[in-house]
Nucleic acid binder design. Sequence first.
DNA 1: GCCAACGTTGGC
DNA 2: GCCAACGTTGGC
Length: 161
Amino acid sequence: MAEERQYWLMKSEPSSFSIDDLGKAPAKTTHWDGVRNYMARNFMRQMRVGDRVLFYHSSADPPAIVGIARVVREAYPDHTSFDPKDRHFDPRSTPAKPYWYMVDIKLEKKFKSALALPALRQVKKLIGMELLRKGSRLSVQPVRPAEWDVIMTLATKSGGK
DNA sequence: GCCAACGTTGGC
DNA sequence: GCCAACGTTGGC
């Protein structure tokens, strides 16, 4: 039985890794390392190849959804957690018993104009979206299909394609 | 740069 | 198992 495609949102600070960086990466693909939050990790482990991802720029001016990516590899151990010199090192995580995971995502498209957070807050149909919840900090979060559809419509209207 | 909101840690 | 203290995230 084929599972339904799932939708997600992943945050990145453009000063450390932007959607343009993803576009310039080999095969427009990157591994999403460095996640050190249980809920975010668990969501990544639920991801399946083909799932769609909203790429979000946090700590940006303005913060915005800037495009779409696709999951191309399902969760596998985040090697940066094994490296004592890495800032994301975690001694609880070992190759034999990994604690942290990452997925690979590939850029699908960058919106022609970003969907800025203040504008998203004005959209009635998006009230209740995790991203817009006060105090929401989850860096990897699920997106409801209805929310996805609304966002695709907004992206098209504002010139995205 | 500030600070609210949150997750995590550790003392008890 | 509670909860205060701490570190981090991320909007503003």
